[in-house]
Nucleic acid binder design. Sequence first.
DNA 1: CGTTAATTTGAGACCATTCAATTTCGGTGG
DNA 2: CCACCGAAATTGAATGGTCTCAAATTAACG
Lengths: 241, 241
Amino acid sequence: MSEFHHLEPLVRRWSKRCRFSPDDCDAVRALPYTRRTFGKDAYIVREGEHTTDCTLLLRGFAFRQKLLTDGDRQIISFHIPTEFVDLQNGLLGVADHNVQSLNHSEVASIPRGPLMSLADEHPNIRLAMWIDTLIDSSVFREWVVNVGRRDSRARIAHLLCELVLRLERTGACRDGMFDFPLTQEQLADATGLTAVHTNRTLQSLRRDNLIQLSNGILRVVDWEGLREVGDFDELYLHQQV
Amino acid sequence: MSEFHHLEPLVRRWSKRCRFSPDDCDAVRALPYTRRTFGKDAYIVREGEHTTDCTLLLRGFAFRQKLLTDGDRQIISFHIPTEFVDLQNGLLGVADHNVQSLNHSEVASIPRGPLMSLADEHPNIRLAMWIDTLIDSSVFREWVVNVGRRDSRARIAHLLCELVLRLERTGACRDGMFDFPLTQEQLADATGLTAVHTNRTLQSLRRDNLIQLSNGILRVVDWEGLREVGDFDELYLHQQV
DNA sequence: CGTTAATTTGAGACCATTCAATTTCGGTGG
DNA sequence: CCACCGAAATTGAATGGTCTCAAATTAACG
């Protein structure tokens, strides 16, 4: 079992994007890291913290969020395995938002120093990292649009479309079907709605035969329909990069 | 007048952040660029475009936006001089959103190739550039929160607080007073509201003696009050970096 | 100064919220 | 395996913030 290296999925993802040399790949594999696990809703990073590591998600889901002073929560992004949940903290000194584990998750904590040195010394790796942060950024922009200008049906449909495409890449979604561990409250916090209205909106999407959702499994019944309702265009995911 | 180099403000901003060597500074100054001007509302970058340059704002304001299929517009960020409006396009192949000139503006178009080579060869410059894109990203996250979870008064107050702090750094805002070229429609598109409701909300902020706004000049009368109404915390701007 | 853009006002409709109660689900221990 | 429990999902009714549509007023500009 020690044949398998925990960072291998990261190597695969990055090397595909940036034509890594064998040396680049080995350099990533040589990164020091600590494996950690988190329970449901556990905090991985806290706003205001001076972070010392970057966190690569190995298993489970995670999400970023900010809390308002009145206690309201806005979820800013969801993350799936092989993604960093806080790569920006490699360069920014202080975390500007929280990161929580969505369900039971497993991560690799990589110290900032070695990670940034790696970037300094390997142009291809640096490029892959930078592009990761740029795609993050593009997703945030789309989320501004989503919560700013779309109605409840479109917001939720759009979010589901995004998850489908991202999960398909990792094989976690096949035939439009995947494990959907989000509670309706989390879905609400991600779309800027209330849990109650999220519930009614999901029912409306089900009624229109766009999706099925039960037992924590989501199935997209009508992809083109969902796409249309969600005003979805995947350009912003930059998946070809 | 040829004493003054158009990229000098950029050199100053970056070198302050990353301890540039004289050589770093000269390398930035040596960048090739084309000066261009744009009229009100003119497109600087269009979604879907394969961009060849990055655009540094020299004078005037600009903003990023996306259009929905139904024609609605969501503004994603505002930009002020010495900022790049599309630095991410140096690495991402295709523009995922539009950039428009807010008023009459002046920019320096820098070809991607030389700009990225510069980053490759100068660690400090690369760091400054990367951090620029990371701060962009942090601002987008805060905007997700703003349009997702705050009511109309808070959204507008928050946006005004952000503008004040950013403009103060460049000297364009003093004593809480600055040229405010945004129309109420643009303000609405940035906060996810309608122009009509933006108008009523501005009146409400004026009535509470938080701001004065007339003749395109905005004056923050009660900074602490505005800050409180907007639930504003400037951590996300990372201005100390 | 004339013409268009931008701001302002009013009234009514609607989408989403709030608050509360009920039902279902998922996990746990007896 | 069933009884139990808390969490999550669902439903209802009333409220409210924001939108829509239209018209009037004011400001900007050539």
